[in-house]
Amino acid sequence: MKRHLRLFLLYLAQYTKVRLAYKADFIIAFFSSMAATVLGFGFVLVLFSKIPKLQDWSFYEILFLYGFSLIPLGFFNVVSWNLYEFGDIYIIQGRFDRILLRPVDTLFQVIFEKFRLESLQEVATGTLVIWICVRHLGLDWGPFDCLWFALMVVCGAVIYLSVFLILTAVSFWFEDRVGIVPPVFNMLTFARYPLTIYSVFIQFMLSWIIPFGFASFYPTTHFLGRKTFTPYFHLVPVVAATFFVLSIFVWNRGVRNYSSTGS
């Protein structure tokens, strides 16, 4: 564990140095990505210039939900690049051989191969939006709420990581360059709006099959004081842990199934 932590810090330091070699370049990437994230709010902003509420959710409540969904996603996106490219780089080009030769856990090496540091702008933007919403909604947050908030962010990031890890591990069996990742990635859009607007089927799917609801909607309902979903809120850590264990299991099965391309 201690060795892995040291290795992680070395990986991070190394990659940060690589990125900061071109400082101006990194700063442009950071702020233009941030502009992109802010523009993502455009739909909600324009919509609420014409309507007072979405179901019984006010403007700042919707904004809170959207903002919250960005924070765990931002943390996940720091490492997500490695998962998107996995099938292409490690399986088809056969680079996974190299990983297997090293005396460190395979998953650890793959996830921390590259860091997309500019994704932290999503965390920054999300936090700023939440701060604005907390003030406007007059929510009274104590230190205990902040602790819950941090825990929910961690759980959310773990849920995103687990879901995409399972999908990535599919490439061990099917050497498909495209995979099923893009459509599922687009399902993240669902989780930015109240689950209650969707049909029962979609609600079920986003809760129990691809549990994005547990990464954004259910935590948000708790912070906004909507008591209907309290049981679901308490399940968030359970769902995160379950999917994490499941993803590790699928990954390890995949590694055992790996046969090199021979190139």
């Binding site: 071109y22 370049d25 990437a29 233009s32 502009a35 523009l39 993502g40 739909f43 919509l47």
Partner: peptide
């Protein structure tokens, strides 16, 4: 040299300003 972030911003700008996400008459 690094334009990918800028392209992402353009992507969302076009989605919004082209009227894809909602009609221009909502603005």
């Amino acid at each position: 040299k690094s334009i990918l972030g800028l392209l992402r911003a353009k992507y969302f700008l076009l989605e919004l300003f082209s009227g894809l996400l909602l009609p221009i008459s909502f603005f």
